[in-house]
C-alpha cells in the first residue's frame, strides 16, 4: 500500500536543500542558525522514524532552542518588484496555469487514486489519499512551472555557460527557501502542536478535564450535560488546537456515559454536532497553527490574533446555532 513515507522524505530533502542554500548561499555570521534549524528538521523528516525516540526528541529540542534564540533569514531581494512586473507582463496567463494545476490535480488524483486496487488491497492508503494526491500534484505543477516560466533563450545566452543550468534548476529551491524563511518557525508549529496533543493524550490530560466537568455537573440535567459536552469540545479544542484530539476525550468522558448512557440521547447526532462545535473552537485558537498562525506569517499580518479576530464573530454565531440545534435534536431523535 502506498502511503506518505516517500513524500515525507521528499519534503525532508527539500528542507535539506534550504539548509544548504543558507550554508553556501550567504556569508553573514548568523547563517548557521537558519541552516541548522532547517537541517535538523530535514533530518527528522527523512530519517526520524528510524532513529531512537530519545534522539528525535533531543533534535526537536535543538530546533526549538534555535527558534527561541531567533532565526535570521538572509535578506533576499524583495526589491526587484520591477522585474516581477515585467515578467508578469511577459508570461501573462502562463503564470496561473501551474498555480491552478496544484488544486485541480490534487482533486483529480484523490478521485482517481481512491478506488484503485492492487492484489485485493487498496493501492493507496485510503486515510492518506488526499496527501498522496497533493504531493503528486505539487511535483507535476513544479515541472510545469519550471517549463512555463523558463527564461527566454536570449537571456540564457547572456549568462556564462556554467551558470545556466544551476540558475534554471535551483530557482524553485531558492524561491521556496524565501517562502520558508518568511514563515520561519511557524512552518514547524503545526507539527509540534500535533505532537503536543499526542503527549497530552498519553499523560491523561483529557481524563483530568472530563473528571473535572463530571464532578461539577448536577444530577438529572440532560440539557446541561449536553451543553457541557458541546462547550467541552470547544474548550478542549481551544487548548489542544485540534477538534480530533478533543473528540475522543469528551465523547468518552461526558458524551457516551452521560448524554447517551444516562439520559438516552442519540449518539450519532451528538457526535456529529459535537465535532462541528469543536471546529468552531478551531476558529478561535492560536493553537490551531496551520489555520490561524501560518497565514499570519505567510501574509505578513501584524498580530498573532489577526485572522482569529476576523473569524471570531462567524465562529461564535455558528457555535450558538450548533448548541441550540443539539438541544433540539439529540434527545428527540433517539426516541
Amino acid at each position: 500500500m502506498i502511503g506518505t513515507q516517500w513524500a515525507c522524505a521528499l519534503t525532508g530533502a527539500m528542507f535539506a536543500g534550504f539548509a544548504l542554500l543558507h550554508l553556501f548561499g550567504r556569508f553573514d555570521r548568523a547563517r548557521w542558525r537558519s541552516a541548522a534549524f532547517w537541517g535538523v528538521y530535514a533530518v527528522l523528516l527523512m530519517v526520524g522514524p528510524y532513529l531512537p525516540d530519545l534522539l528525535d526528541g533531543s533534535l526537536v529540542l535543538v530546533m526549538v532552542g534555535l527558534a527561541a534564540i531567533g532565526l535570521r533569514p538572509g535578506r533576499i531581494g524583495d526589491e526587484d518588484a520591477r522585474r516581477r512586473r515585467d515578467s508578469a507582463r511577459r508570461l501573462r496567463g502562463r503564470l496561473l496555469v501551474p498555480a491552478l494545476l496544484v488544486p485541480l490535480l490534487a482533486g483529480l488524483f484523490s478521485l482517481l487514486l481512491r478506488p484503485l486496487r492492487w492484489q485485493g488491497r487498496a493501492l493507496v492508503d485510503p486515510a492518506q489519499v488526499t496527501l498522496v494526491a497533493l504531493s503528486l500534484a505539487c511535483i507535476i505543477a513544479l515541472v510545469a512551472a519550471m517549463w512555463l516560466t523558463r527564461r527566454p533563450r536570449y537571456a540564457l545566452l547572456l549568462m556564462r555557460r556554467h551558470q545556466r543550468l544551476p540558475h534554471q534548476m535551483l530557482a524553485p529551491l531558492v524561491e521556496g527557501r524565501r517562502l520558508a524563511d518568511a514563515m520561519g518557525w511557524a512552518a514547524v508549529l503545526p507539527q509540534m502542536l500535533a505532537a503536543l496533543g499526542a503527549v497530552f493524550v498519553a499523560c491523561g490530560v483529557g481524563e483530568a478535564v472530563s473528571r473535572l466537568a463530571a464532578g461539577v455537573l448536577p444530577e438529572a440535567a440532560p440539557g446541561l450535560a449536553l451543553l457541557a459536552y458541546g462547550l467541552g469540545m470547544v474548550a478542549l479544542t481551544i487548548v489542544t488546537g485540534n477538534a480530533f484530539a478533543a473528540f475522543p476525550v469528551m465523547t468518552a468522558g461526558i458524551g457516551l456515559p452521560l448524554v447517551v448512557g444516562r439520559y438516552g440521547g442519540d449518539p450519532v447526532a451528538m457526535s456529529s454536532l459535537g465535532m462541528l462545535a469543536g471546529y468552531c473552537g478551531t476558529l478561535l485558537t492560536p493553537m490551531a497553527a496551520t489555520f490561524n498562525i501560518v497565514p499570519v506569517a505567510l501574509l505578513g499580518l501584524p498580530s498573532r490574533w489577526s485572522v482569529i479576530r476576523v473569524q471570531a464573530p462567524t465562529g461564535a454565531a455558528v457555535l450558538v446555532f450548533i448548541l441550540i440545534l443539539m438541544q433540539c435534536v439529540v434527545y428527540r431523535s433517539a426516541t
Partner: peptide, 23 residues
Amino acid sequence: VAALGHAFVHDDFIAIGWLVLPV
C-alpha cells in the same frame, strides 16, 4: 522528551503540505 520526539516524527505527514513552497 522521547515521547515528544516519537509523536513529532509520527506526525510528519503534516509537513507534506510544504511541498507546494517551491511551486
